Amino acid sequence: MHSKLHRRRFIGITAAAAGVAALPAVAGTDGLHVWTGTALGARASLRLYHPDSRTAEAAIQRCIAEIGRLERIFSLYRPDSAVSTLNREGAIHSPPFDLVRLLDSARHLHRTTGGIFDMTVQPLWQLHAAHFSQQPVPVDGPAGSALAAALALVGQEAVLVEPDRIAFARPGMALTPNGIAQGYVTDRIAELLRSEGFADVLVDLGEARASGEHPDGTPWRAALADPAGGAPLRKVDLDGALATSAPSGFAFDRAGRFHHIFDPRTGQPAEARPSVSVLAPEATVADALSTAFVQMSTDDIRRTLRVHAGVTVHALTRDGLSEELSSAAG
């Protein structure tokens, strides 16, 4: 495999400071307080306005603690996380409320996207990761029989979710929180800050969510980058959430034929658009819809938008053309 196991991000938040190590909050003369670090394996930042440095710093520390708590639920790389425990054992009793809530959202999004968004594609990821880890590195994908066996383990409807128990209906199933958990954590942090009275906030935890405005009176802004490496496709004012998906974020093979976005109907890497960005009221929804829409036709995206109010989609076609689609405001 030629890249690290994470999604490359195609969202550039203007005025965002580069950096991956956790830093203390920095206050500017305009009352803007900035923290940068990592969350769920992605570069992360918090930007909030408050005239009192101590109040802002205390809020940021609470946000960092909450990010850590949620990572202990959703991380695929921590063997003690709730998701890792569920994947290993096939069931989990007394599950964390946040995992139940996330899976309820995932079930709804699975239904509204016609089954395209599906958290149970993890066996397909595991199969491809193992296959392309062989030496010499294979040129083609996994054998048809292996692919069929992994695909038989895919199906969001086979995840049984109750307040006191989550279980898989079929042995060997596994969840991936990629494609929704970053959005969910972003929402939780944005809501925490809102509950504490912070009105002007930009949370960027792999997906972004903004409220209010920059202290200089301008909107929070985001640049949607060209996945081919060219100039930004466009800049957008951000009042709500933004998420982007692109197949070029990670590929198992050097040629880039076998990427990380799997079609749950076929088990193959999806016939995908180069990039899709979704603006929505909540980052959980934006995250999941961007994952689904990168696989969908324009007509299918339009049908899905009928049941998701206040969503705008900026998408590239396979021919490199740009499309903008919007739902009703709701």
Rank of each mutant, 00 (worst) to 15 (best):
V20L: 14
E282Q: 13
V161W: 06
S322W: 08
A169G: 12
D287W: 02
S211K: 04
L23M: 11
Q182N: 15
A286P: 05
R257N: 15
D226E: 05
R303N: 04
A16W: 04
T284L: 13
S105C: 12
L147K: 05
K4T: 13
A251Q: 07
A225Y: 03
L325S: 07
L224V: 04
P281D: 14
L76N: 03
G206T: 01
L46G: 07
E213R: 15
G37S: 09
L233T: 00
A149S: 13
P136M: 12
T186I: 07
T298V: 14
L242V: 11
L192W: 08
R254L: 15
G217P: 02
E66K: 11
D140Q: 14
P281S: 10
L316D: 04
I180M: 14
L151N: 10
G41Q: 00
P95T: 00
L40R: 02
G183T: 03
V20T: 14
P247A: 10
Q135K: 15
A106V: 12
V313Q: 12
I166E: 00
F252A: 10
Y77K: 11
S211Q: 14
A208R: 02
F250N: 06
A146Y: 01
V294S: 06
A22K: 09
A167L: 07
R188M: 05
A315P: 01
R234W: 05
A228K: 08
E196G: 01
D287R: 02
P177L: 01
L160P: 00
A18W: 09
A106M: 09
G41Y: 11
